[in-house]
Amino acid sequence: MRLFRKLITACACVAILLMATAVPANADATDFRKLDTLMNGAVRDSVFPGASLAVIYRGKTVFHKAFGHLTYDPHSAPADTTTIYDAASLTKAVVTTSIAMQLVERDSLDLRAPVSRYRPGFACNGKERITIEQLMRHTSGLRAHTYFAETCATREEALQAIDRDSVVSVPGAKTEYSDLNFILLGSIVEQITGKSLAANFHTRFAAPLTMNSTMFTPPLSLAARIAPTGEDGIWKLPRPRPLVNDQNAALLGGISGHAGLFTTTGDLTKMVKMLMNGGQLDGKRYIKASTVKRFRERGDTPRALGWDLVTPGGKSSAGHYFSSNSWGHLGFTGTSIWVDPEKDLAVILLSNRVWPTPENIRIRKFRPVLHDTVVECLEGR
């Protein structure tokens, strides 16, 4: 009897210990059927032919699935979580901004310095006082977009065209999203480091984070894994066109500060977790926490440094439930990252909505519904 009582006591202690260390029953038991239904419906409604979606919540990837196919042909390969997508303007935030964070904290790049410190030829036609910070916040006054391939044949000719261009608004007076800002930033990163943007990102982030499917100018050997984007019928140059959807990025050799990155949702979860965790992941620090915080601050503009922010009281692609402290970015090809630090939540969407034509803009209405649905699933709304 005494032995039996000891056994019961021991079992009770083990049970108490297990209860104390167990994960709450609902932590990994979120009902995502509503999200599945939404994504499958988006494929049926031709929002995109296929997509990969990852949800990070409280430090864990709690949802990671792919939907649809690589094209609208039902016989095309199904999309999966290893499908590689053209990230488009996510390049600005994931690549150029992350590298800029490291350069700023190591005093190689001065946010308050005029762009002309790094590109002397830029100081003309009202651009003399434009700063690096104004490029990053899209308050430079530069025009939003130019098809450089219509007048330029090389990367250097395109950069010189930006140097010679005039502003379309007073620098610092208003926010106007511009690819030209980050084309310049990419070239400045390369000038400071003496290495290409692709080499910088690979060495600083992709390799140590084991983002093995993330790169610029992917090789033909990966073609079967890459979701196609729209055909470019206006390429005028005699040399072969790089794979990237963005024509200016193609002119720049497929590597630019504004576009050109190819990646997967699995790889991006590592980068996003690192940024959510104050620049550190798995015991390795990539960026100082103070630097990450500095680059997320709104300041006097509606955008952070390299990242977009939720507009208070306005419509946002992040939906209705993401807090006003949320940060993220969109990509033209149908990609997005939105992070809510208050909810400790991130949603990463990669798609090729531009296949076969960029005229398909259904994703504009879909994005806020997607983010609302994710929150509703997690919070049981």
Rank of each mutant, 00 (worst) to 15 (best):
7 L>T: 10
9 T>K: 12
11 C>Y: 07
11 C>Q: 06
11 C>N: 06
12 A>S: 11
12 A>Q: 10
14 V>F: 13
16 I>K: 05
18 L>N: 12
20 A>P: 10
20 A>F: 04
22 A>G: 10
24 P>Q: 13
25 A>N: 05
25 A>C: 04
27 A>E: 09
32 F>R: 03
32 F>C: 02
34 K>C: 05
34 K>N: 09
35 L>W: 09
35 L>I: 05
38 L>A: 00
39 M>S: 03
40 N>G: 11
40 N>H: 12
41 G>K: 08
43 V>E: 14
44 R>M: 08
45 D>A: 12
47 V>G: 08
48 F>I: 03
49 P>D: 08
50 G>C: 00
51 A>Q: 05
51 A>T: 08
51 A>Y: 04
54 A>T: 09
55 V>H: 06
56 I>N: 02
56 I>Q: 12
57 Y>E: 11
59 G>V: 09
59 G>H: 06
59 G>Y: 02
59 G>K: 04
61 T>K: 15
63 F>Y: 15
64 H>K: 09
64 H>S: 10
65 K>D: 02
66 A>E: 12
66 A>C: 00
66 A>F: 03
67 F>V: 00
67 F>H: 12
68 G>A: 03
69 H>M: 06
70 L>T: 14
70 L>S: 10
72 Y>D: 09
73 D>V: 05
77 A>L: 15
78 P>I: 03
78 P>F: 12
79 A>N: 15
79 A>I: 04
79 A>G: 13
80 D>N: 15
80 D>K: 15
81 T>V: 14
81 T>W: 01
82 T>S: 15
82 T>N: 13
85 Y>L: 04
85 Y>P: 02
85 Y>E: 02
86 D>K: 04
92 K>C: 03
92 K>N: 07
93 A>M: 02
93 A>H: 06
95 V>D: 03
97 T>W: 03
98 S>K: 02
99 I>A: 07
99 I>F: 13
100 A>G: 01
101 M>S: 02
102 Q>C: 09
102 Q>I: 06
102 Q>D: 11
102 Q>W: 08
108 S>T: 09
110 D>N: 15
111 L>I: 09
111 L>S: 01
